[in-house]
Write a protein that binds this DNA or RNA. Structure first.
Lengths: 215, 215
DNA sequence: TAGATTGTTAATCGATTAACAATC
DNA sequence: TAGATTGTTAATCGATTAACAATC
C-alpha cells in the first residue's frame, strides 16, 4: 500500500461501494473481473476505477484484470474492516435503537460494546444482548472498556456537552447523526456525519425541480 | 430565479445546510448577514457562498449583505419546502419506524400519508397516527391518495420488485435506504440514497488511517 | 507470439477560490 | 461621499476521463 499521499474524500467515499460489489461478485463465485466489466456494473468509467485502486497499489495484472477475492480482501484491509474498533451508542431513542439492532458492526470494522441513554424508561431494556445503561455509568465504563468511537443519536441540544465529555473520556471518533458540528471544535477527531434531514431536503429539491416539478 | 442552467450536485448538497444556518440565525433574531460572517460560522469561503447563492439569483445588496429572513425564505422556496409531496413508508422495521416517527416531514417538503409492511406482526400498530397497512392494500391506496415518493426501508432482496410495483403505481421519487440501485433501471426517477453501512465504513477508514491508526 | 488489460501520464472538465468593478 | 459588500469574471486547483506504453 502506498502510504505517502493523502487519499481524497471523493476516492474514500467510493471505497465502500467497491467493496460491496466485490463481495457480491465473490459470493456469485466470480474469479476475475476487468476494470471495464466492473465499470459497466457500477456505472463508472474504467479509468476512474483503475485510478482509484492505484491510489493504494497495483492490485491487477495486465492482460488479465483483477482477482475478485484478492481485491475484495485488499479493499477490506484498506477500509480497516479487519480490526474492530470498540464503539458505544449514545441515545437509545427510535433512531439509536434502529441503528443498534440493524447494523452489522462486526462486518464494518466496529464492535458495539455499550449503549447509554439518560431516560430511565429504557433502563433494563436489551439490544443485541447489551443492556441500556444510565449515563452515570459512562465514565466507569469507558475506563474499563476503552471505547474509541461513539454513535451520536442524542437530541440536538445534548450533543455539544456530550461530545466534550466523550473526548475527555478518551474517545476520538464519532458517527454523528446530530447536526452538531463536532469538527469545528475538535478538528482532530474522526467524524462521519449522517444528516438525514439534509438528505430528505435534497430529495425535495430534485422532485420540485424535475420535469413534473410541484406535480 | 435563473431557470436556465442545471445546478450541480455539489451546490444542491450544500443548500440544506445553508437553510439550517439561516433558520438558526433567524431564530436568534439576526436581521442581516454578510457572506464573510456566514462563511466564518459555516467553515466555508465567502466566495463559495456568494457563488452558490448566485446560481439562483441575486438575493443580496451591495454594501449591506443579505437579509436573513428573506434569504431563509428564498432557500426554502428553492428547496421546495413550501409544497408538500405526499409520501409513503415501505417497511416498518426498526429503521422504518425510526424514520417515520422522527423526521419532521412537513418541514422538509413532504407529508407522510401511508405506512406499509408485509409482516402481519405490525398490523394495527400506529405511527404518527397512521396505521401500518398490509402491502395488499397498496394499489388501492395509491389510486386514492396518489403518493409520489416512497421511503424504502425494506430488506435488500425485496427492493427491486417493490420499486417496479411502485413505479407502476405512479410513484417517481425515492428516499432509498437500501443498496438497490434504482437509477440504474429508472434513470428518470428522483432518488436520494442513504447508505448507512457505506457511511460507517468510511468512518472505519478514517479511524484506521488517522495518526493513531488501529489504536 | 498476439491479445488483453493494467498502471500511469497527459488532457479535459468542473468546482473552488481570488480579484475587482459595480453599486448600495 | 466613503465604506462595505455584493455579483461576476478570471485564475487556480482538483477530480475525472482519455490515451497509451508496459507487460502479463
Amino acid at each position: 500500500m502506498k502510504e505517502n499521499k493523502e487519499i481524497s474524500a471523493s476516492v474514500v467515499g467510493r471505497l465502500p461501494r467497491y467493496y460491496r460489489f466485490l463481495c457480491e461478485l465473490s459470493a456469485a463465485g466470480e474469479v476475475r473481473i476487468s476494470s471495464r466489466e466492473l465499470s459497466e456494473r457500477m456505472g463508472l468509467t474504467a479509468s476512474q476505477i483503475r485510478q482509484d485502486f492505484n491510489c493504494f497499489g497495483g492490485f491487477g495484472q495486465q492482460g488479465y484484470g483483477y482477482n475478485v477475492e484478492q481485491l475484495k480482501n485488499e479493499m477490506a484491509a484498506i477500509l480497516g474492516l479487519d480490526v474492530l474498533t470498540p464503539a458505544i451508542l449514545m441515545g437509545a431513542g427510535n433512531l439509536g435503537r434502529a441503528v443498534a439492532s440493524q447494523m452489522r458492526f462486526e462486518e464494518m470494522g466496529f464492535s458495539l460494546v455499550g449503549i447509554f441513554d439518560t431516560d430511565p424508561a429504557y433502563r433494563g431494556m436489551k439490544l443485541r444482548g447489551l443492556q441500556i445503561q444510565s449515563n452515570e455509568k459512562l465514565a466507569d465504563f469507558c475506563l474499563k472498556k476503552r471505547p474509541r468511537m461513539a454513535i451520536l443519536c442524542v437530541p440536538q441540544d445534548k450533543a455539544p456537552a456530550l461530545v466534550d465529555e466523550l473526548i475527555l473520556l478518551g474517545l476520538d471518533s464519532f458517527w454523528n447523526f446530530s447536526h452538531y458540528d463536532i469538527r469545528a471544535k475538535y478538528p482532530q477527531a474522526n467524524v462521519t456525519n449522517v444528516h438525514l434531514s439534509d438528505s430528505l431536503m435534497t430529495l425535495s429539491y430534485s422532485i420540485k425541480n424535475s420535469q413534473n416539478g410541484g406535480k
